[in-house]
């Protein structure tokens, strides 16, 4: 059992090693520092927590066991905020460019991955929510006029 990004509700971007994630369902958004951003990158690449911990330990100055424990805590936070969801399987994928660059040089300082939550734009959804009707729900016409 692994986890995956809760697309399309969660949209994200990693920039200069840090991440931003927006939850389109709740209107909350999150910033994630460098360690957490690499964890997020691993989730997007469908890695399980063991492989993610190994990669974190390759890039950052941290023991792999500590990394694994803290990644699990961080993952619970992501699940709680519905930014990721459980899925049946996880598999490995090639090293990220961040890791390839970093493994050749000195390891980066480690810090516990954290999710910084912002709730100041939920009003946008509450005042003017957008409800998408997916193509298969929209047509054909039904006699009772309901979707």
């Amino acid at each position: 059992m692994g986890i995956k990004v809760n697309a399309p509700h969660a949209v994200s971007e990693i920039i200069e090693g840090e991440a931003i994630v927006v939850n389109l369902k709740t209107g909350c958004y999150f910033s994630i520092g460098k360690v957490g951003a690499l964890v997020w990158d691993c989730i997007m690449k469908n890695l399980d927590s063991a492989d993610t911990a190994k990669r974190i330990a390759k890039v950052f100055d941290v023991d792999v066991k500590i990394a694994r424990r803290e990644i699990d805590v961080f993952t619970q936070e992501l699940l709680k905020e519905s930014l990721v969801i459980m899925e049946d399987s996880a598999s490995s994928s090639p090293m990220s460019s961040v890791e390839e660059q970093s493994s050749a040089v000195q390891k980066l300082a480690y810090e516990t991955p954290r999710l910084v939550k912002f709730e100041d734009m939920q009003d946008l959804l509450l005042l003017d929510p957008v409800h998408e009707v997916h193509e298969q729900q929209g047509w054909p016409w039904k006699k009772d006029g309901t979707a």
Binding site: I20, V22, L24, F118, M121, L124, V130
Partner: peptide, 24 residues
């Protein structure tokens, strides 16, 4: 920083204008 700029720019744009299929 770039991430500070994206945090200021992206959520208010995406939450106001985009639906789920356009957000990413």
């Amino acid at each position: 920083s770039a991430i500070e700029s994206l945090v200021a720019l992206a959520p208010s744009t995406i939450l106001q204008l985009a639906g789920e299929s356009d957000g990413q």
